[in-house]
């Protein structure tokens, strides 16, 4: 239990650093020096010390959105094990709550965006929810395949069971799942090739445009929540793809952190070598992810 709590706090503490690593990777590929590793921490610190300006159009929904989003992500982080270290909260079917936590966060942020009555934010909300409709079933088929491979009911049972003994039997499925989860991760977190986290004022943007009107602590909650969401999904990917799950907490922690570094580099490299897709290509990308997931599932049916 202590280990689980430590892991949870470590997730909370390191999520902004994860964004820092991605940014530095992108800077490296672009031949720039890049912002400091800890820039996101500085940003959060700055935002937490500011006041807020709220639009006159808005209501309590606008203020609730960021809190709901962050609370859901804090909850999701508590449901995810680190290798062999079980999660702080584990019960049969916890993966369903895990996945619905993302939907709850989205419900909050999308309504907060619509609350401003701005066409910018309306556009962001419309696109965010459009992508989620395509990504959510894929994500669930991935989770379902994990259950079918391991015959375990909870995430804390599923993840440790994805050990080196399972890989010879279900390796192909797991690799396909890794591909599908990676695409879902990119889409859900508004990374290139779906959305560009660096553009604030272009019409293809999705996540960034939804939060235009948030300021101060509200924006800090949103930025931190988004970082945590990326961290949680990346940690799930590491859990699925890395077969080594040492029993000692230190070993599991080290494997997890190394894996996270790998995912951060992979995201950074993807963003560096790819351009953003045209908006109408995004369903096709998610369809590919769905194809991977479905194939993985069919392979488990043998």
């Amino acid at each position: 239990m202590t280990a689980a709590v430590c892991c949870w706090f470590l997730s909370l503490a390191l999520a902004p650093l994860f964004l820092g690593i991605i940014n530095r990777t992108k800077a490296f590929f672009a031949g720039r020096h890049g912002v400091p590793w800890c820039q996101v921490y500085f940003d959060l610190w700055k935002l937490l010390h500011k006041g807020v300006v709220c639009s006159r159009t808005t209501t309590w929904v606008f203020r609730l959105g960021p809190m709901l989003g962050l609370a859901a992500m804090l909850g999701a982080a508590a449901l995810l094990p680190w290798g062999a270290i079980p999660a702080g909260v584990a019960f049969t079917g916890d993966m369903i709550l895990f996945a619905y936590a993302f939907a709850l966060a989205r419900f909050g942020t999308v309504l907060a965006a619509l609350d401003t009555g701005s066409s910018f934010e309306g556009m962001g909300a419309s696109r965010e929810i459009w992508i989620s409709v395509l990504a959510e079933p894929v994500f669930f088929v991935c989770l379902g395949t994990l259950v079918a491979v391991t015959h375990q009911g909870s995430l804390s049972g599923v993840i440790p069971a994805l050990n080196p003994q399972v890989w010879p039997k279900a390796g192909l499925s797991l690799v396909l799942l890794g591909g599908a989860l990676f695409l879902v991760l990119l889409a859900e977190n508004a990374r290139i090739p779906v959305d560009d986290p660096n553009t604030h004022l272009e019409l293809t943007m999705i996540h960034e445009v939804m939060v235009l009107d948030h300021a101060g602590p509200d924006l800090a909650f949103i930025v931190y929540g988004a970082g945590l969401k990326l961290w949680v999904l990346a940690a799930l990917l590491v859990n699925v793809l890395v077969p080594w799950k040492p029993l000692s907490p230190w070993g599991s922690g080290a494997v997890m952190l190394a894996g996270m570094l790998g995912v951060a580099l992979a995201v950074g490299i993807t963003e560096s070598v790819m351009a953003r897709l045209r908006l109408r290509r995004i369903p096709q990308m998610l369809l590919i992810a769905g194809g991977f997931a479905a194939l993985a599932l069919i392979l488990t049916l043998r």
Partner: peptide, 9 residues
Amino acid sequence: REQASANTW
């Protein structure tokens, strides 16, 4: 702290 109201951006 300051909690201002303004128009939607």
